[in-house]
Design a protein around this nucleic acid. Structure first.
Lengths: 171, 171
DNA sequence: CTGTAATGATTGACACCTAAAATAACTCAG
DNA sequence: CTGAGTTATTTTAGGTGTCAATCATTACAG
């Protein structure tokens, strides 16, 4: 960012300084699409991360974990969380440790299977999440604001098709 | 994965077990789009990571770094790499250390400014990258195979618009 | 010149993330 | 009952990522 002092990010990007814009002209369409998909996701994700950190001193993985639990008042096991968050079990252990330390979730031993932990939101957790989620949705609406309803629907459809194909191809 | 033993990942996803499919019906479109975007990117990214690791014992960040350098025979400074890879400088230091240790890149001190390192691919690096990049493009083509040319063009256009808006909004 | 600010890169502390090994508890055929 | 296999979770080791502090070098006003 140093040597571009004073120039906005927008201008820098428009000038072709990011990964995706610079993809060679002879790169194929599929590759270009992948790079653009990655760029879009990274831009939005890092923005959300930054705001979550600045506004609430919170992180995206913890927010994601709490979002899963908020939908399930009965709680979720570590495995279920792992599957839903699309991360490994070991990772869920670490994130749950953190959020538990903050008092937003509790691990409860399942009555009929002592291997299983049922993780659920505490009252403080539910309250904190509600507050963050409300703002979070505004951020996203804002970030998606460049598209009208028809375009959003179209994107949802195309990405839905892409997702199905990827999931189906993946061994 | 436990309670779904024997059911394919595809079936499980189709049944609605992942983060995005389960988004509540009352969630707004913008949020749904964001989750779907994130899911698509994560699915593809983790697939590429896995293949890169299995096929070449290599990682995505290192591949990305070499991809940037491959386009620039004169090499790039650490700052330039940082900007293009959209990660922090400290991170570039670490990744460069690794790839340098593997003999695929070298740091050369710039003649006129002793603060600057110019990183460039070695001959071994260029060769290794060419081999990986060729396969990589096939993987991507494969993953995008569910979409025809028109759909890819449409996605490129819509995501391009989204990207511009995000970049423009983000201060 | 000279001191002060700016710049390029590295370091250290910490959070994430994965794969693979380890641990503990459950299941069920024999 | 028993022991082999399965399942749920944690642990370990190592790469990736951020931010803030640091160090060396360069630029530049006075």
């Amino acid at each position: 960012m140093a040597q571009m002092k004073g120039i906005t990010v927008a201008a820098a990007q428009a000038a072709g300084s990011d990964r995706e814009t610079r993809a060679c002209a002879d790169d194929h369409q599929a590759l270009r699409l992948w790079l653009r998909l990655l760029t879009c996701t990274n831009l939005i994700e890092s923005d959300v991360r930054r705001r979550l950190s600045q506004r609430f001193s919170f992180t995206l993985p913890r927010f994601d974990l709490m979002a899963q639990l908020d939908r399930c008042p009965d709680g979720l096991t570590m495995s279920e969380l792992s599957k839903r968050m699309m991360v490994t079990g070991g990772n869920v252990t670490g994130i749950t440790d953190q959020v538990e330390r903050e008092g937003f979730v509790v691990r409860e031993v399942a009555p009929n299977d002592r291997r299983v932990f049922r993780v659920r939101l505490t009252e403080a957790g539910r309250k904190a999440f509600a507050e963050m989620a409300a703002e979070h949705e505004l951020w996203i609406k804002d970030l998606m604001g460049g598209l009208d309803d028809a375009e959003i629907t179209q994107l949802l459809d195309l990405l839905g098709r892409l997702k199905s194909h990827v999931v189906a191809t993946k061994p």
